[in-house]
Design a protein around this nucleic acid. Structure first.
Lengths: 337, 337
DNA sequence: TTAGGCGACTAGCGCGCGCAAGCACCATCT
DNA sequence: AGATGGTGCTTGCGCGCGCTAGTCGCCTAA
């Protein structure tokens, strides 16, 4: 039983043997190592042998030798953003893959005491949607992860304008176009969302200011605590006719409360959500919303991570977020189709 | 500049130096290597030094030397199951972590041509929620992944009873209790869900049979193609008074169509969903649903993966799925509170 | 003719760790 | 006294790969 038969894994040495060259040459060819000149004939023989044997470099060995795992760990928040982020993650994976990196997503559980994934993966870069706590940062440092986004003490790049606020201005404009002048903002009561809610509210407020509208009346809306009913009553009495919701969930809760209170949506109160989740189309009345093209965000994310990973001259990646209103029943005016 | 100062990473050699023992001893102590006897004093010195220096084993080196990455890759389908699976994943992570494994989740994109994650992670086991295609299996074999669940040619263990159908029987029972005799099943038109829909429908059908009810009238429901309106009309004419929906989304679409058709829910048509998603509570009328405790499923999953990883005698892990009806407005009867 | 340069490759070290083999030491048995 | 067997450790190989420091032959210029 020869060595080649006994072991199952095809190594670079096997390829070298098959191509009649040394192991180093195989490495040079497959990695296109700069500063190494390889004759066309040899290169072809090596590539052909690699394909024929089905050679796959052993990632652990590569990581050990090179000191880089070519892994990017994306830490997602523990609230469900999955749906709206799907495109974003796909796009980011693709962009990273083209540069030889893989994206791994990770959703730590608040109470869960499992070892964080960066300890078992040794990613080159850890990217967080939210800022990291001191404990997490210490844990990363301890296991050799030095490249972190956002860096210690910095805010997440995803919650800064225009990323976070792009769609909120559209919500306000949309209601303004439909003739609504007194607007309110339905915020989430989820503490974990603090900054994102703030960002969206800020953008909406700013837009209202530009349009010459009065300040938005903000209320925090919980899921089943009656806060929505109270807010709706309050708004109705205050003459508010249009509600900008932080997201589609809040829009649904507000709309539901209004309907239960005997108000007509959009007749007495128009409501617009954010993210264009499936819920928006299913609700009765269907909810107007804002669709954000998160593919851009994905590419931006990848660019950011790559800059960190390769330490390249940081041309501050530009991000153009495309967003558009998806009008539905909840903001329909009388003269609409 | 000493060596210890120059390099940032703390290695087992550093710990050995600090504890005054050889590197091998450090390994034996930290791994509790069976067949090695270490004196209590030495063991304490090593552990103390490891903690003091903040030693973390280099996972790539461990993987290379041991031939095992201690990584379990869970391949999720590309439809949004995130919400209902969150608990499941948490529980699975925890259970695996206790045994020294890490769970990585991966959602391949249908069109995306990024390198699959098993190639860059070399996981010990790949677990799929759905069966794998021949291409995927070949790719896994090529990069040394031999342990796959479900194995080639086998169906997923998650879509078999009682996992998949546990809640569906409860839906039928619930409607039966409320006096409904002619029931229908609202299936999803998403082809990717084929088997799961089948499983749930089968369980519902079986339960109906046991209760002496006629066969369920199945209709596929799309999201905005009018199929829901058609189904509702058809059901109403056929005298159906209760609808078992594949999940809460379908329940919402059916309920919405009924309301728009001027029917009263639950007066003219009672509807019950499945999964108890947030949507169920927000909808108007709120949707009765079935909450499944996916934590059990998570532990089962972990057990399955561990058996595969360690090749232990496979005592076929038992799975008890706990499910309960969450009654809401969409199935409320007159005499209910 | 010979030094020198260059293209095309190879030898081999080191990454950090698991683990087999070996070795010194001491207590017990013959 | 020497043989035996265990305890408690060390030496050192090998995992597969990246990459530095060469080697070797050939071609050109002095």
């Amino acid at each position: 039983m020869t060595k080649a038969t006994r072991q199952q894994r095809v190594t670079a040495a096997d390829v070298a043997g098959a191509a009649g060259v040394s192991r180093a040459t195989v490495g040079f060819v497959l990695n296109d190592t700069p500063g190494q000149t390889i004759s066309e004939g040899t290169r072809r023989r090596v590539l052909e042998a690699a394909v024929r044997l089905g050679y796959r470099p052993h990632t652990a060995a590569q990581a050990l030798a090179s000191g880089r795992s070519r892994l990017i760990l994306l830490v997602l928040p523990d609230w469900p953003i999955e749906y709206s982020m799907r495109r974003c993650l796909d796009e980011a994976s693709l962009a990273l893959d083209r540069r030889g990196y893989s994206l791994v997503t990770y959703t730590p559980h608040a109470g869960g005491r499992a070892r964080p994934l960066w300890e078992s993966l040794s990613p080159d870069v850890v990217v967080g949607f939210t800022s990291f706590g001191a404990e997490d940062l210490a844990s990363m440092r301890a296991c050799g992860v030095t490249k972190v986004i956002p860096a210690a003490g910095q805010g997440s790049p995803f919650w800064r304008p225009p990323v976070a606020g792009a769609g909120s201005a559209l919500q306000v404009e949309h209601l303004h176009e439909r003739g609504h002048r007194r607007l309110a903002f339905g915020a989430s009561d989820d503490a974990r969302l603090g900054s994102l809610v703030q960002e969206r509210f800020g953008a909406a407020q700013a837009c209202a200011g530009e349009l010459g509208l009065p300040e938005l009346d903000v209320r925090r809306i919980g899921r089943d605590d009656g806060s929505a009913a109270a807010a709706v009553r309050h708004w109705h009495e205050a003459g508010v006719s249009g509600v900008v919701a932080y997201n589609d969930d809040i829009a649904a809760v507000v709309t539901g409360a209004a309907v239960r209170a005997g108000l007509s949506v959009p007749g007495d109160l128009a409501v617009i959500g954010h993210d264009d989740s499936p819920l928006a189309g299913m609700f009765v009345p269907s909810l107007s919303s804002v669709r954000v093209d998160t593919a851009d965000l994905g590419r931006y994310l990848a660019e950011l991570a790559l800059q960190e990973a390769e330490g390249s001259a940081s041309s501050p990646a530009q991000l153009a977020v495309e967003a558009e209103v998806v009008p539905r029943e909840s903001t329909r005016s009388r003269h609409d189709g």
